[in-house]
Design a protein around this nucleic acid. Sequence first.
DNA 1: AAAACTGTTCGTATTTTTGCGAACAACGAA
DNA 2: TTCGTTGTTCGCAAAAATACGAACAGTTTT
Lengths: 98, 98
Amino acid sequence: MDVKVFSDNQEKLARYAKALGHPVRVYVLELLGKQSCCYSGDLSEELPIAKSTLSQHLKELKDAGLIQGEIEAPRVKYCINKENWEEASTLFKELMQR
Amino acid sequence: MDVKVFSDNQEKLARYAKALGHPVRVYVLELLGKQSCCYSGDLSEELPIAKSTLSQHLKELKDAGLIQGEIEAPRVKYCINKENWEEASTLFKELMQR
DNA sequence: AAAACTGTTCGTATTTTTGCGAACAACGAA
DNA sequence: TTCGTTGTTCGCAAAAATACGAACAGTTTT
């Protein structure tokens, strides 16, 4: 049976927050707030982490639904997943506005 | 020397987000948004987790600066740490508003 | 086709998080 | 002072997160 303890929104918010819970991922999302899209390679140059590590962080953001990747020739173009981003925004707003 | 890669705000935001990255902690903060304070014992009854586990979650929120605890007779009263909560609110708002 | 470029996946190691029960500490009540 | 209540801390175990380099896969360039 399994009684439900947390609301969907609580679970979702926690999931989004968790995805935001690392400086690298905040960095990426902040960048995507400013410039609509970015390439993994550019990030790799700015950040002092191995590219495999960066790839994992991007995967986390993707799995959480906050970004989406699009293959573009040799590279991968990342941008915000607008729908989920707005959902996250709403959830955070609801929580914080008091 | 250690060159700085992330801004203070990025680090702070990640820290706050991390603290929000668990349903139990979201639950607590949501509650504190509605009712100004709460007691660990009440939470313990509503949530299906051991009291030691709850205590740890509260400690995390405290360490992150989002709540503060005040000893009140036999119990402990928790409430929002207003200053930091507002800082977190601002940081999230800045990130999300686009 | 071979080489170069870009990014993911794999294997591994380390650290952190999550969770529990038992033991403990602080306090008020009997 | 002894007992009960409340909540934290300790010790432990299991799971997840973080990070790296090596190997791999898909394209494009040569």
